[in-house]
């Protein structure tokens, strides 16, 4: 196995691992708040679940980039490409946007979701507005996903 392929694997692992960890933390934060609201009013389960699920998307984006990296280096075809150190570094770098931005945005989206859960507890009629606030954080996760895909596609193997 060449140094290049090792770095490519590291890139895929970081994208999946960091973004997934961020999502787990974010979903956990929102879930704790959701449990608080549902203790008093279980009928809000649907709305709470929707808000709790929002920080989970970063984990999916990370997994997507991980799959793209693995596809790009031919893992699924059964014939892994022979990568130079330079190519491996390029793949590692292309994974970093979603790994880093995915990790932090998921945590902060979890916090925004917890705040929004508090909002629907007091004012269920404002659910639309409550959804918009944590969804704003999603923008930056989507941008980092886009950045990762563009960087990955620019690599010549």
């Amino acid at each position: 196995m060449t140094d290049g392929i090792v770095l490519a694997y590291l890139g895929a692992a970081l994208a999946i691992g960091l973004a997934g960890s961020g999502s787990a933390i974010g979903v956990g934060i929102a879930g704790t708040s959701g449990a608080g609201v549902m203790t008093e009013d279980p009928s809000k389960f649907g709305l709470v679940l929707l808000l709790q699920a929002l920080p989970g998307t970063q984990g999916i984006y990370g997994l997507l980039v991980g799959f793209l990296v693995l596809t790009r280096i031919g893992i699924f075809a059964g014939t892994p490409a022979t990568l130079t150190l330079n190519q491996g570094l390029q793949i590692l770098n292309s994974s970093l946007p979603i790994a880093i931005a995915g990790f932090f945005s998921a945590i902060y989206q979890g916090k925004a979701s917890a705040g929004a859960i508090g909002l629907i507890a007091r004012r269920p009629e404002e659910t639309g507005k409550a959804l918009v606030m944590p969804a704003m954080v999603e923008t930056y996760a989507v941008l980092s996903l886009l950045g990762s895909i563009l960087l990955l596609n620019g690599i010549v193997l």
């Binding site: 934060i29 608080g36 609201v37 009013d41 909002l119 007091r122």
Partner: peptide, 16 residues
């Protein structure tokens, strides 16, 4: 203080 997340959300409901 994230450990107060559950309490704060429950309080929001109780404030009604």
């Amino acid at each position: 203080q994230e450990e107060y997340g559950y309490a704060c959300a429950r309080i929001r409901e109780l404030e009604k």
